[in-house]
């Protein structure tokens, strides 16, 4: 079943060629080899994929678990709007 986490993991595997086994939810994004610029680009791609907007003050996410929670929160806000 596709969840927000697996969708983001798919996206990273596809875009950056990172081994899926590396993509543990609580592991810092920098440990996947994503530097600060790549992380900014990842957030941009996540916004595109989920059709959401991540404001600058919410953009500091450290790992996939935090990013997944943020995406789910924003999706829920869109659904309630």
């Amino acid at each position: 079943m596709s969840t927000t986490l697996t969708t983001i993991q798919d996206l990273i595997v596809e875009k950056y060629g990172v081994d899926r086994a590396e993509l543990l939810p609580n592991r810092p994004l920098s440990e996947f080899g994503l530097d600060s610029l790549s992380q900014v680009e990842l957030l941009f791609t996540v916004e595109e994929t989920f059709d959401i907007t991540i404001s600058d003050d919410r953009a500091q996410v450290g790992n996939l678990a935090e990013l997944t929670a943020l995406v789910d929160e924003l999706l829920e806000a869109v659904a309630l709007a």
Binding site: G17, V18, S38, E41
Partner: peptide, 8 residues
């Protein structure tokens, strides 16, 4: 380049 290195 790896795909990761191709970013930007």
């Amino acid at each position: 380049f790896t795909r990761l290195q191709l970013s930007g």
